[in-house]
């Protein structure tokens, strides 16, 4: 049988932990609306990145360009990015 949870003597002393939530909690499953960016109109102002509470929006730079990327593994669909985007290029789309 596969052992899922650690035995008492396998846990680090003092209940200390070093595992990051991003490695195991994919909170994207919470979402009912999904933010979708229209990249052609995005001004790359970064307000959405700054206000995302997770945070799960970041700027991805390639050699020629940069692009705002949403990590849907974590996006809870709060809608703050869409609300705060100054040029209104993020749509909240029902999943």
């Amino acid at each position: 049988m596969k052992k899922e949870l650690p035995y008492w003597d396998e846990m680090e002393q003092g209940f200390v932990t070093r595992t990051l939530t991003e490695m195991i909690n994919k909170t994207g499953t919470w979402r009912t609306f999904k933010p979708v960016i229209d990249h052609s109109r995005c001004t790359k102002c970064r307000w959405c990145i700054i206000y995302c509470p997770e945070p799960c929006i970041h700027m991805e730079a390639s050699n020629s360009d940069e692009k705002v990327i949403i990590d849907y593994d974590f996006c809870k669909g709060c809608g703050i990015c869409a609300e705060e985007c100054p040029v209104k290029v993020i749509d909240m789309v029902e999943e």
Binding site: C45, P53, G79
Partner: peptide
């Protein structure tokens, strides 16, 4: 805003705070 955005993050996604939580924004 860019100068702030470019600082590395030390707050990991995958936390259990409610969608839209202001405390998460502050911590971040």
């Amino acid at each position: 805003i860019k100068s702030l955005e470019e600082r590395p993050d030390f707050f990991s996604p995958g936390h259990g705070l409610c969608p839209g939580c202001g405390a998460a924004q502050i911590a971040r």
